[in-house]
Design a protein around this nucleic acid. Structure first.
Length: 457
RNA sequence: GCGUCGGUGCCCGAGCGGCCCAAGGGAACGGCCUGCAAAGCCGUAAAGUCGCGGGUUCAAAUCCCGCCCGGCGCUCCA
């Protein structure tokens, strides 16, 4: 396995800390608003990595935090007259629903920041004790310049970073140096607080992930991920905290790229902001279409997204599903078929090269084309090809060939389809087309196959 | 401004020194199939400037230099 490591800026061999087991920490959401497509890309990137590793036989431990206390949550609670936990619980539930709808596996552990405050305090205490951090009236800060390669993740020196620091935000006068950042924020009126050796207050943002990742996964865990926008300051600061505490932090860093809508960055101010729910509501196929799109673009490339592109991806999903319908109509016994070892090997090779999901999907679509041909010609290889296509797309979290949901309507539709078949047999094509149009008006599509008609919603 | 990543067909996007007269998906067109469709299969399209201009090399979409354009980071952010 080879992965592009943000720290070394190279594609490097990925060697897990423990053979056969992989530990992943991916930064999760701050729950205070609707999750948007960017969250979907982030979560799906690590969902795909985790699924592939599991498919490849690794024992994976995937951890993603839930930030349930921060400025945004406090602001929203104040604005809406709610408590911070009420805001966090509400938006966490919405986030979880969106993830489930996108068929993203829940990380094995999803710790909440507020449940980890004591561990964070213990962590900060180590930093205060060893002189890496200092206490002021406003809180506890980390002495950034005490860390030699602080800017390593973004490949910048202290001085280069200092040029930017304070250029746009006012420098906190309590800090010894503009680069320093808060580990612990002293209590302000009206804010939720926790007791600490440095007075009541709440933890800074970065300490949360440092404490939880090391606490759950242990020193030198394998992979730390997130969006590229987190490289600085978030990941840089987490890493600084770990180093200052004498801990070995994650051994590989991966970062997924952002996405653009209609050629521009997605943002609230540009009003081109798409929530996950908006996209899911638009079409029942969109959850899988979104995954297909993400798979067909490498995770480190900016992804262009708009309504048209999602619609195109839906066509791709339909092509995948159509193969399964054909296979079932032709009674191809793919459930117990052996996989095509060449395709599996090629798939694995591509995925092991920094998650080559676009190439992996190309392999899957090749299988689909060959399978369709084999089904049409009654070739024995059909079962294996179909089975392989299902297995490989499944390894990426893309379900195809799911039986469509049944409803009370099914019997009535079956009868209409049968009536059409009879009309066709009697050469009464006017009646056959009338039935087909009637069903089409209800969103039902009939497909004729050599082995009889099948229908779908 | 500084840093960084990128600009490939009608669209989305792989490829990153020879296997590329450029994967895969979508759209289009033609053929087969069909009662007609849909789905499927087969095939086609000057991708002739792989952003533009230089250069290196026997060989460049792939490396180097300059320029133009865009994303992201420098500020809460996936």
């Amino acid at each position: 396995m080879r992965i592009y490591d943000t720290l070394s800026r190279k594609i490097v061999d990925f060697v897990p800390r423990k053979e056969g087991a992989i530990s992943i920490y991916a930064c999760g959401p701050t729950v205070y608003d609707h999750p948007h497509l960017g969250h979907a890309r982030q979560a799906m990137t690590y969902d795909i990595a985790r699924r592939f590793f599991e498919w490849a036989g690794y024992d994976v431990l995937h951890v993603a935090n839930i930030t349930d206390i921060d400025d945004n949550i406090i602001n929203r609670a104040t604005r809406e007259g709610l408590t911070e936990p009420e805001v966090a619980e509400k938006w966490e539930a919405i986030y979880m629903d969106a993830m489930a709808a996108l068929d993203i596996l829940a990380p094995h552990q999803q710790p909440h920041a507020t449940e980890y405050v004591q561990e964070m305090i213990d962590f900060i205490q180590v930093l205060v004790d060893n002189g890496a951090a200092y206490v002021t009236d406003a809180g506890v800060y980390l002495r950034v310049r005490s860390i030699e390669d602080y800017g390593a993740l973004i490949h910048r020196t202290h001085d280069e970073l200092a040029e930017g620091a304070g250029a746009r935000v006012e420098v906190d006068p309590n800090k010894e140096d503009p680069l320093d950042f808060a580990l612990w924020k002293a209590a302000k009126p009206g804010e939720p607080t926790w007791p600490s050796p440095w007075g009541d207050g709440r933890p800074g943002w970065h300490i949360e992930c440092a404490a939880m990742s090391l606490g759950i996964l242990g020193d030198g865990f394998d992979l730390h991920g997130g969006g590229t926008d987190l490289v600085f300051p978030h990941h840089t600061n987490e890493r600084a905290e770990a180093i200052a505490a004498g801990r070995t932090f994650s051994r590989y860093w991966m970062h997924n790229a952002m996405l653009n809508i209609d050629g521009e960055k997605m943002s609230k101010s540009l009003n081109n902001f798409a929530t996950i729910q908006d996209v899911l509501d638009e079409h029942p196929l969109n959850a899988r279409a979104l995954r297909l799109m993400l798979l067909q673009t490498h995770y480190r490339k900016i992804l262009e997204i708009n309504a048209e592109v999602i619609a195109h991806a839906r066509s791709g999903i339909e092509r995948l599903d159509a193969m399964i319908r054909k296979a079932e109509a032709a009674k191809v016994d793919y459930a117990s078929a052996e996989l095509d070892s060449d395709a599996v090997a090629e798939f694995r090779t591509q995925m092991e090269d920094d998650f080559g999901t676009p190439e992996a999907m190309a392999i899957a679509f090749e299988l689909v084309r060959r399978a369709n041909g084999a089904i049409d010609s009654g070739d024995d290889s059909a079962a294996s090809l179909v089975a392989t296509a299902i297995d490989l797309t499944g390894a990426l979290g893309l379900r195809i060939g799911e039986t469509q949901p049944t409803s009370d309507d099914d019997v009535r539709i079956d009868e209409l389809v049968a009536a059409r078949t009879e009309a066709k047999a009697n050469k009464d094509f006017a009646e056959a087309d009338r039935i087909r149009d009637e069903l089409a008006g209800q969103g039902i599509t009939i497909e004729d196959t050599p082995t009889g008609p099948i229908w779908r919603r």
